[in-house]
């Protein structure tokens, strides 16, 4: 491991000195070579669904390709650490998201120091925020949110919800709903959103909260029914479905996906990346791609993200603290 690291360091040093030479020689414009975007999650997830269209469009504004590299493992921490410890030159970016907040704050709440934390990155911008929606199987007798609440209240601990995994945003969505209404349900985690949705469609769970972009196509095909949206406003492609707020209780949940860079990245490079990200999120091709997912782009710039991230961390920490008090132990 040690040798390996020093070897990488040597290579890095070599590459770095080369880039210094050119920086001194001619006033070179960033970027001079392709940018690596680390995706700390396995291929094929929501991260990829936004990062790949971003990468496809970003080349137009950067002049150099953006290469998405999946580095999954340890709930994303392997990729997160690789991203934070990369050379702070803007050539290695990481997909930051709510997943990052959860995995890091869980460590903090349990009195451990995560190897890298939010403040090890500088925010570049948010590609979009994907809300979660509360759904039931299509054949379910629950037609509205009120039905669901009444039924669950009548039979505490009798109903189950499924999620894409323990402490995933889809787990938090259901927990937020259940706790806000003072209900009691059992949780069955699955390995990923695909298996969780299959289980719901097949009636192996009573309800779930999953991302809008995976749930909406199934709702349109009459495979499940969306009862309420966990976003501040209704989703354009499903205008008939109310938000939680409209029904009286404000339950919001979702996942932002954005770009972050190592914290010591030079300010001009950060500026350039922020500018490009803002341009991409307004680019018709990108907007179109996201709209085809049944979604609108909810982007943020770097400063907004930094603020939003702190606020999200605070909210999630509250929920996670409750979990920890109730005896949930995820400790290595």
């Amino acid at each position: 491991m040690k040798r390996n690291r020093s070897f990488i360091f040597l290579i890095m040093a070599g590459v770095f000195s080369l880039s210094l030479v050119s920086a001194n020689g001619v006033k070179a414009e960033f970027p001079e070579r392709p940018i690596t975007l680390i995706n700390p999650q396995a291929p094929g997830g929501a991260n990829d669904a936004l990062a790949r269209p971003f990468a496809a469009v970003a080349e137009k504004y950067l002049g150099k390709p953006v290469v998405v590299v999946n580095k999954p493992g340890a709930s994303g921490m392997i990729g997160n650490i690789a991203g934070a410890q990369a050379a702070p030159d803007g050539y290695t970016l990481t997909i930051g998201s709510t997943l990052m907040t959860i995995v890091m704050d869980w460590e903090v709440i349990n009195g451990r120091k995560p190897e890298v934390y939010r403040n090890d990155y500088v925010s570049i911008g948010v590609l979009s925020v994907i809300p979660t929606v509360l759904s039931v199987p299509y054949g379910s007798s629950w037609k509205t949110l009120a039905d669901a609440v009444r039924e669950i209240k009548g039979k505490p601990s009798q109903y189950t919800f499924c999620s894409a995994g323990l402490l995933s945003p889809t787990h938090l969505g259901s927990e937020r709903f259940v706790r806000a209404y003072g209900l009691k349900c059992r949780h069955v985690p699955y390995k990923g959103g695909g298996p969780a949705l299959t289980a719901l469609v097949g009636g192996h769970a009573d309800f779930t909260t999953q991302f809008s972009l995976t749930s909406i196509p199934l709702a349109r095909g009459n495979k499940l029914r969306i009862l309420a949206v966990q976003a501040p406003a209704r989703i354009k492609s499903i205008p008939d479905v109310p938000t939680f707020k409209e029904t009286g209780m404000k339950v919001e949940n979702g996942m932002w996906l954005g770009l972050v860079a190592p914290k010591n990245t030079p300010a001009p490079v950060v500026e350039k990346l922020r500018e490009v990200t803002a341009k991409v999120t307004k680019d018709p091709t990108y907007v179109e791609a996201i709209r085809d997912l049944g979604e609108e782009v909810r982007s943020m710039d770097g400063n907004e993200l930094a603020k939003y991230w702190d606020q999200e961390s605070e909210e999630i920490s509250k929920l996670l603290t409750q979990f920890a008090k109730e005896g949930l132990k995820i400790n290595p």
């Binding site: 396995a42 291929p43 094929g44 997830g45 990829d48 669904a49 790949r52 269209p53 496809a56 695909g194 909406i216 196509p217 199934l218 349109r220 095909g221 009459n222 495979k223 179109e288 791609a289 085809d292 997912l293 049944g294």
Partner: peptide, 21 residues
């Protein structure tokens, strides 16, 4: 997982697989 990646590629091209695909 391999099919999940094919699906992402379709998404990039603006095709959303689903029951109505």
């Amino acid at each position: 997982p391999a099919i999940a990646v094919i699906m992402v590629a379709l998404l990039i091209h603006g095709v959303r697989p689903g029951p109505l695909f």
